Structure formats: structure tokens, C-alpha cells
Simulated assay, not measured.
Amino acid sequence: MGFLDIDNATKSYGSVEVLHKVDISVEEGEFLVLVGPSGCGKSTLLNMIAGLEDITSGQISIKGAPMNGVHPSKRNIAMVFQSYALYPNMTVGKNITFGLEMHGVPKTERDAAMAKVADMLQIGQLLDRKPGQLSGGQRQRVAMGRALVRDPDVFLFDEPLSNLDAKLRVDMRTEIKKLHQRLGTTIVYVTHDQIEAMTLSTRIAVMNGGYVQQLGTPKEIYDTPANLFVATFMGSPSMNLIDVAIRADGNAVYADTTDDQGRKVSLAFPAPGAALRSFDGKTVKLGIRPEALTDVDGADQRSSHVEQIENTVTVTEPAGSDTFVTTTIGGAECVGRMRSDADVAAGRAATFAINMEKAVAFDPQTEDRIA
């Protein structure tokens, strides 16, 4: 049993089930991110944890106590919303301590708690201002301060950074991570941004269509995606997918495909298992991350299974520390991540290094990863 347990939780609106038997156990101090496209059910699940939405079936427990039917005010959770939800007529200090005042906490304790979080979030100089006098980043800090001051069992964040500009999102992401490392609090965080999910979480639940597609650490989600949806949703640029024919030859198994000129290319799998061998003679989807499709000098020197292919470059995109290079393999456009000084140009041939230790195969029928 975890600190926060979601056990077979479903949610229906009339005859339409929008969340399907969600099972997640969150340990104390964990940072769980619920990530997925709009309409996948992540915010609905967060609202069920908060008590803002009823559970149709199943159970949600916090510290072993069932929360079904328990009023949000009795759950000892704190929520940070996308819209900040600050009282415009109150000062920052009053916004932070208002909840404590409503719960009858003495003023001396309220002031001490406010001073502590103001120092932690570096907003001490803002305590006498009104929300209308603050920037978006400052308002988000105040919203976080209002949650932190209560010392709850679980913090719930509902896309808190989506209203901020790109640079401020990165800055606030760092601040939230620092806070979690310092306080060791239990956090459930909703976002549609897979970069936020990867950088903030200790574990990620990737959701789509009301189902949890995969639950795991950022490394597990990225390196061994459970299915094609997870593979393509997580990672930027997205994982390259190539139709290949599986060919077993003795102990070896190859992915047979073609280069940009239609010439046959055979890519050997390292340590192929029985599941992959069972696809001998069949077509599968081969997934290759951009960083596993690179220039020879940029290839992982620790890998013992790097294949090389001569191909024509169609597009180059310099991106500071990297150069993204587009080419065609097996009739599919593929993006490689090369070094910034890689000698490549559109229209010229280049040697691509493919790290087959990082390649993943998917069943095209079920879309599940082939173990």
C-alpha cells in the first residue's frame, strides 16, 4: 500500500466512461506526473483525488484512509491551479494565509508560516501587493505559497505553468523541482508537456483515451515505451518509426529495410529474444530515437551494436548544441541528432550511425512493444 492509492478508479458521465480502471500507487515523497494529450482524463483523475469529482467506481485512499465521499476540505490536500485562482482584492500575504485563517489558525502561527514560505519562494517583497500588480511568474509563486503554507499530505498541480512564457516555464520548472528536493513532499502533477513530465517526475503515468498507457520512471518510459502511443508522445523530436522485415538467421536476427536509394539494408539486433524471433518473416515497426541516429563521431562509443548506413541528407536544422538532420530510411522520413559541427548539408550523402542497442520493435497489429 502506498501513501496515495488509486485502486481500479473509474469515472463515467452518464453511460460514457471517461476513465477506465486506473491503478496507481504513489509512495510518500514521490513526484508523479500525469501526462497526455488534451481530453485523455488526466485532469479528471486529479480532480477525483482532490474530491472535486466523484468516483464512479473503485477507491482512492490517502495514508490508508478511503477518500470516497470525503469533502475536499477534509482531505488535507493542497491544489495549485493553471489559473492561479488568487483573490484580486486581497494582498499577497492575505492570499497566502486566508485558508489558515478560515481554519482558525492563530495569527502568530499564520504570520510565521507566511514568512517561511515567502522566504522559500523569494516573494517577501511582494506581500503587501495585490495580484493585479504581479507578473505571471510572481502570481504562480503566490499560488504555490498558498499551497505550501498548509503543509498538506499531498500537493496537486493542474498544469500550473501553461500560462507562462517559454523562459519563465523553464525557470519555474526548476523552482518546483528544487522545492520537491528540499521538502520531500508528495506531488501529483498534471501536464500535457512531455518535457515537464520527464524533467520533474520520479515516475510518469502516460495517459490516453482514459487509460494509463504506461507507468514508470522517466528512463523506463523513454527507453522502453510500452506501445506506439508512448513511443511517439514522449520525446522531442519524436521517435522515428520504420517498417522493417524481421529475418532470423541462426542466432542472429536482422531488421531488413532500405536506404534512400531503395538498396537493401540489414540492421542486426543485439541479444534478440524469443518474442522478436517469433516475427521471423513478418513486418514490424522499428523505433529509433533521434539521438540513436547520428554521425559516426557522435555515436555512443560504449555501444557494441552500432550499424552504419550511407544516406542522403534532405534537411538540416542547426539547433545550437545539436544539428537535426532529416533523411529517408525504409521510405520513412527520419530525424537524426548530430553534433553541432557535424559535416552535413542538404543534398549531400552522409554516414549515419544507428545504435541498435537503443532500437525498439513494435507489433504493428497490437501496437505493443515486442519484448
Rank of each mutant, 00 (worst) to 15 (best):
Ile370Leu: 11
Lys178Val: 01
Gly216His: 11
Ser38Ala: 11
Phe233Trp: 03
Val253Gly: 14
Thr327Ala: 14
Pro290Thr: 05
Gly132Ser: 06
Leu183Trp: 01
Asp223Trp: 10
Ala197Ile: 12
Ile55Trp: 09
Ile62Glu: 09
Ala231Ile: 01
Arg110Ser: 03
Ala342Cys: 00
Tyr254Ser: 08
Ala166Val: 15
Pro152Gln: 10
Val105Trp: 01
Ile62Thr: 07
Val230Ile: 13
Gly2Val: 10
Gly287Asp: 04
Arg150Tyr: 13
Cys40Val: 00
Asp151Lys: 14
Val206Tyr: 02
Met338Trp: 02
Ala292Gly: 12
Met90Leu: 15
Asp119Leu: 10
Ala299Asp: 06
Phe362Asn: 10
Arg339Gln: 07
Asp280Asn: 01
Glu109Val: 04
Leu134Trp: 01
Arg141Glu: 05
Gly210Asn: 06
Tyr13Ile: 13
Lys42His: 07
Ser12Glu: 09
Arg75Lys: 09
Ser303His: 07
Glu109Phe: 06
Thr217Ala: 14
Val149Arg: 03
Lys282Val: 05
Ala255Gly: 07
Ser61Asn: 06
Tyr254Asp: 04
Gln138Cys: 12
Leu45Phe: 03
Leu200Asn: 15
Ser303Asn: 11
Thr97Arg: 05
Phe352Cys: 07
Glu196Cys: 11
Asn355Thr: 13
Thr191Gly: 14
Gln125Phe: 10
Leu179Pro: 15
Lys107Gln: 03
Ile242Lys: 07
Thr314Pro: 09
Leu200Ala: 14
Arg141Pro: 07
Pro131Lys: 00
Ala9Ile: 05
Lys282Gln: 15
Gly331Met: 06
Gln140Cys: 11
Gln213Tyr: 03
Arg203Met: 08
Val190Tyr: 08
Ile329Gln: 12
Glu333Arg: 06
Leu126Arg: 01
Ser321Trp: 05
Gln82Phe: 13
Val284Asn: 02
Asp368His: 15
Val360Ala: 14
Gly93Gln: 00
Ile309Glu: 03
Phe229Gly: 00
Asp7Cys: 07
Gly14Val: 11
Lys130Met: 01
Gly39Arg: 06
Asp158Pro: 01
Lys63Pro: 04
Leu241Glu: 04
Arg302His: 15
Val105Gly: 14
Ile176Pro: 08
Val142Trp: 02
Met79Asn: 07
Tyr211Phe: 15
Ala112Trp: 14
Gly209Cys: 11
Thr323Cys: 10
Pro364Phe: 05
Glu291Asn: 08
His20Asn: 03
Arg150Cys: 12
Ala248Tyr: 01
Phe269Arg: 00
Ser201Trp: 04
Leu267Lys: 00
Ala292Asn: 13
Lys63Ala: 14
Tyr189Thr: 11
Thr316Lys: 10
Gln122Thr: 12
Val244Trp: 08
Lys42Arg: 12
Glu196Asp: 10
Glu220Asn: 09
Val335Asn: 10
Ser201Cys: 10
Lys130Phe: 03
